[in-house]
Design a protein around this nucleic acid. Structure first.
Lengths: 201, 201
DNA sequence: CTCGTACCTGAACGATCGTTCATTCACGGA
DNA sequence: TCCGTGAATGAACGATCGTTCAGGTACGAG
């Protein structure tokens, strides 16, 4: 558990980094926003980099945890499994908007070790999608002729949510997720098993 | 016309901004990379901000010019027109990779006036897509039940290209563009006019 | 030759940055 | 009571930042 002071600092850093960008944000402003002194910050964190690391790490773990749960609840059908991943991703991008923008735009500012972790996680995330799309194509339920590009497209669509979504919009997060599930299934050209193909040869 | 020195400075700024981000890039490094002195830079440009402005502006104008040409060559069919826009966007994201990453991630660093211009341009760009999707839906050739989200999805897919595309990959820019045209038409559920609907009521 | 102009330079300025440090305060255990 | 430890402070450090400035060079026009 993190103490109240630590939590306030992290929250302030979240906003400052998201608003100004990592490099342009100043730790003095972060401390001021958190209502603590500059040195108090150094009591909890070793420096600016660790703040970024903590933010990216926390939200990254939350994402993978969410993916794991959704996939567990999903069945074997690739359509269902893709829907599960899309749901988790949309929810994450909408609920962790600031952290999402951070990881999407400030990976340059990470230290070497952080960057490695981050890229490995991103790779693992892509692999989950890739595996599911591949399975769907193999089983003939995903008809897209371009599985790789469709996968990239689905991920890009979901990721972009962080850039425009605002709380209190016309759609709830859950409604948004279901809508993007539809779009994703359209993009991979999902045809549930058992139906006749639409373009008979 | 810009002189050779000016062009070298702009080219150096392009790379430094893209690699480190605007705030983290130093104009000393830019000058060094361009092979000119620090003060020489101030002879051509009034400051760091103007470098960013010049880069964003140049590439932005190139994009809209490209869209205009493609749309002019396209016919009246919304499918054709959407394809034209997607082609222009994919080409731009792939060929102006660095500038694309800049505008996508460093809008925070723009001055108030720059930001206004940029957002207006982005709005205009979205409007072009929006108009076409709307027409397609009205004419019944785009069957997507979620035109707004489909439009956002198409744009997001194309934009993401700047993040992973590298010259010399397995696909040429033109091949990539055609592939994304296919994906975009799938996403809006394009059914060319004159065909019977696939889900008759 | 002289002047003006465009091009370019090194040195410096003030500001702000991330970080460190010595110190103080609060407080629970011995 | 004294001591030790974690929390918090303000002041300062060195570095780097963007920017400015006075001056130097090359060169074509008069």
């Amino acid at each position: 558990m993190r103490g109240a002071g630590q939590q306030a600092i992290l929250e302030a850093a979240r906003h400052e980094f998201a608003e100004r960008g990592y490099a342009a944000a100043s730790i003095r402003d972060i401390a001021r926003r958190a209502g603590v002194s500059l040195s108090a910050m150094y009591h909890y964190y070793t420096g600016k980099q660790e703040l970024l690391h903590a933010l990216v790490n926390d939200s990254g773990q939350a994402y993978f945890e969410s993916c794991r749960k959704e996939l567990e609840a999903a069945g074997d059908d690739p359509g269902e499994r893709l829907a599960a991943l899309v749901r988790a991703t949309v929810r994450y991008r909408a609920e962790y908007r600031l952290e999402s923008s951070l990881t999407l735009t400030e990976w340059r500012s990470m230290s070497a070790g952080q960057l490695e972790d981050f890229q490995r996680r991103q790779f693992d995330g892509s692999r989950m999608f890739q595996q599911i799309v591949e399975d769907g194509v193999d089983q003939g339920v995903f008809r897209t002729p371009h599985p790789e590009d469709a996968r990239r497209g689905v991920i890009a669509m979901c990721n972009a949510i962080a850039q425009w979504y605002r709380e209190g919009g016309e759609l709830s997060v859950d409604e948004l997720a279901e809508r993007y599930v539809e779009l994703a299934l359209v993009l991979v050209e999902y045809r549930p098993a058992g139906r006749r193909p639409r373009h008979p040869a």
